[in-house]
């Protein structure tokens, strides 16, 4: 009995030891972070200031995101991926939900929307009970943790053409795109997140992460409007296995793909209605 306990302790210790470098990939000093106290955000008609968000951040955000914005808040250790993704490490300046191309910083609007929207299937709630002014200040606060917001400019948001009318042809064309760029490798041929590569997915810090299941009624991570879905696969979700498809899907085709993805989802949509009459078969996993 004693030896077995012993073994468990050793195992736990080893696990803790190896998990350490994952979470503490970057560690800035308090002075370094404080040197960016003059960071501003310009969003929702307000100019956000770091100092004006200090109270809200310390009261509402610090539990997960930590004093230093390094995702080492007290609660973070109990968030176990893939069920509960780890909080974002703001020091790294890498963000999932952007309107900008992969490898670039998000705009103030992107961060504002992320705070407003929250993240479905995570511990990050919707924060729309904050006033817009409070949220603008929090955007400045989030930015001041990362030196990247001083040395780099946000990327240029991708341009999204106006949404066309959903037609049966477009849904069928979207199915072709789904097959061609092989979304099913992770998301599965029926969008059920059971593709051949789904089980081994890891995020940039080495934690397991699940592909999005289109069929279970939850919302996509970065918003559930048609434009949000368009943006997700054209910009990629940085820090996760989801790549950008901007080089391989033309803007018009991208809308087709959005309509096809809609047919998987439980949320009512015109695309779903039309799909009922089309009797589409799932794409083949062995082309």
């Amino acid at each position: 009995m004693r030896t077995r306990l012993h073994k468990w302790f050793l195992l736990l210790g080893a696990a803790a030891f190896f998990a350490l470098p994952l979470t503490s990939r970057a560690q800035l000093t308090t002075e370094d972070i404080a040197s960016r106290d003059n960071m501003e955000s310009h969003v929702a008609g307000y100019t956000g200031h770091v100092q004006d968000a200090a109270y809200d951040y310390r009261r509402y955000c610090v539990g997960c995101h930590g004093d230093m914005g390094d995702a080492n808040g007290e609660v973070a250790q109990w968030l176990l991926p893939p069920m509960w993704p780890k909080p974002r490490n703001f020091q790294l300046g890498v963000f999932k939900c952007r309107s900008t191309p992969t490898g670039t910083l998000p705009t103030d609007d992107d961060l504002f929307n992320a705070i407003t929207r929250g993240f479905d299937r995570s511990a990050m709630p919707i924060w729309n009970q904050f006033t817009k002014y409070q949220r603008a200040n929090l955007v400045a606060y989030v930015k001041h943790f990362s030196p990247r917001f001083v040395t780099e400019k946000p990327g240029t948001p991708i341009s999204i053409p106006p949404e066309p009318e959903v037609t049966p042809e477009r849904i069928k064309a979207g199915r072709e795109v789904f097959a061609r760029v092989q979304c099913w490798k992770c998301h599965g041929v029926q969008g059920m997140a059971n593709g051949p590569s789904a089980s081994t997915l890891q995020d940039d810090l080495g934690f397991p992460i699940a592909a999005f299941n289109f069929t279970d009624g939850t919302r996509p991570k970065c918003g559930d409007t048609d434009e949000d879905i368009y943006r997700i696969f054209m910009t990629g979700l940085d820090g996760t296995p989801m790549p950008s498809f901007a080089d391989n899907i033309k803007p018009d085709e991208a809308w087709d793909l959005v309509f096809y993805l809609r047919t998987f989802m439980q949320q009512p949509s015109k695309a779903k209605e039309i799909a009922k009459t089309l009797n589409l078969k799932p794409v083949s996993a062995n082309p």
Binding site: R25, A26, Q91, L92, G93, V94, T102, G103, T104, P147, R148, E152, R180, V181, Q182, K185, D204, G236, D238, T240, P241, M242, P243, S244, F245, A246, D247, N248
Partner: peptide, 21 residues
């Protein structure tokens, strides 16, 4: 299809993740 996903330390270089079907 592949996705090419370099993992630099974000404090040193800027990473990206692009698909190549």
């Amino acid at each position: 299809a592949h996705n090419i996903h370099p993992l630099p330390n974000p404090m040193i270089n800027v990473g990206w993740n692009q698909s190549q079907p």
